[in-house]
């Protein structure tokens, strides 16, 4: 009778040990999976954020560059410049400085161009002043020379609206 009980107990133990085989494998697999997911998900999240931010930066940057380059080929005065700005950034308008004979367009603080004009013109009927004779388009800010461009803007004043 005793032997029979021992036999039954041992049989139960054998099945228990077999069950442990599978549980053990599954436990390590779960741990490895958790480690994998923790590291890869963190990387996916961080890198996706950087990737998307850069693509967003390009969207604004390319529009600002496009204004600068198209201006050099087509713009004659600040009215033309205003139309060009509206083509790429309908919601943002540049500002004119009659004193400095410049028009500054700022898509955001990192995407700024400053157009330099040769002369001030005044509409005799309306008295509205504008700038004509595009000389150059300063893209220092786009090139990363933020300080130099910011300093050059000091003392500028708003011109009249076109």
């Amino acid at each position: 009778m005793n032997l029979k009980n021992i036999f039954i107990a041992l049989t139960v133990l054998v099945f228990g040990v077999i069950a442990l085989f599978f549980m053990q494998k599954s436990g390590y697999a779960d741990q490895a999976k958790a480690n994998y997911e923790k590291n890869t998900n963190a990387s996916y999240k961080g890198n996706s954020m950087v990737f998307d931010l850069v693509n967003t930066a390009i969207e604004t940057n390319k529009g600002t560059w496009a204004i600068a380059c198209e201006a050099l080929q087509t713009v004659k005065n600040t009215q033309d410049m205003a139309k060009l700005e509206a083509k790429f950034f309908p919601a943002t308008k540049g500002s004119m400085s009659i004193t400095n004979k410049t028009r500054r367009f700022e898509a955001n603080s990192s995407n700024v161009i400053v157009s330099n004009f040769a002369k001030v013109e005044e509409n005799k009927t309306t008295g509205v002043k504008s700038l004509a004779g595009l000389l150059s388009v300063d893209v220092s800010v786009l090139l990363g020379n933020v300080v130099a461009a910011a300093e050059s803007e000091e003392g500028s004043e708003e011109g009249e609206e076109e």
């Binding site: 931010l53 850069v54 967003t56 930066a57 390009i58 940057n61 955001n108 990192s110 786009l142 990363g144």
Partner: peptide
Amino acid sequence: DARFKQISHLYSSVGINADVQNGI
């Protein structure tokens, strides 16, 4: 130097800090 400055400026414009930029 100018090339790095221009790229870095674009990355900084959307708040990607210098450590991340230097890492890449």
